[in-house]
Amino acid sequence: MFKIQHAEFIAPGIKRFVIEAPRIARKQQPGQFVILRLYEQGERIPLTIERSDPERGTINIVVQSIGKTTNLLNSLETGDSILDIVGPLGKPSEIEKFGTVVVMGGGVGTAMAYPTAAALKRAGNRVISIVGARSKDLVIEENEMRAVSDALMITTDDGTYADKGFVTDKLRQLIDNGTRIDLVLAVGPIPMMRAVADMTRKEHIRTIVSLNPIMIDGTGMCGGCRVLVDGKSEFACVDGPEFDAHRIDFAVLVQRTSMYRAAEQQSMEDFRREHDSLLARIRAEQQEAECALQGGGR
């Protein structure tokens, strides 16, 4: 079991967790992720690590409530525990001095882009960050991103904060202004990453995206997370999660991500009804397990 040292909402439906996971904290590098499972009947879901503190033995994850598991996770609070966490998984981001790098974060993807942006900055790159969200409430990690960026641009879909529009509008401006861009890193919803890829392909700007397909084991064993890269299957868990955006077949990515939509909706509906009892049950199970541990069980 992995203790939640601190949990707080940083935007509506988006929560940051500081979790005790000393082994993972020692090894984590930007771009890597964990897989977690909340309770005995739970599924395994991948989540990018926002940052880690090897001395304190903690990792941070930022979670947006979308389906049952993320909603349930976001119901957990400081002092609760997570049954299973494994990681750090996936290849770390490629960090070197590229020159000028544009880091783009869409929605909760900003929290995933942050550690890589910070590492790129440390490696001596000029980092231009573009952060986008649906509206003002959902702009996250603004200060963190500002601290590691030479320039920060913010867009909201509805114009309630900063500039109205999409992150791709800002990228377009940079390109049109003749800014020399050596690399683009885009992390966010699939349609956003796809739009970025389409734009930079024409401009021949190397572009990296971080994918989050359906995954089970995360060690290369099941092959469920395969993505079509230049027409060949690669596994997001061991070959990724970051890929060259211009080689990805986004249509297949969308198709595979939607594979369990009906079941996911059913889970979510059941969960709305059972939320309170499920949460109570999980907490009771955690307490029982903790007592067993203290009693010298296993």
């Binding site: 739970g42 599924e43 089970i216 084991d217 099941c222 369990y260 079941a263 889970s267």
Partner: peptide, 18 residues
């Protein structure tokens, strides 16, 4: 793995779908 490890055959009692 879905069926054996994750008990997808017991969905929705277990969360993993099939």
């Amino acid at each position: 793995t879905r069926i054996n490890l994750m008990h997808a055959y017991e969905f929705p009692k277990y969360d993993e779908p099939m």
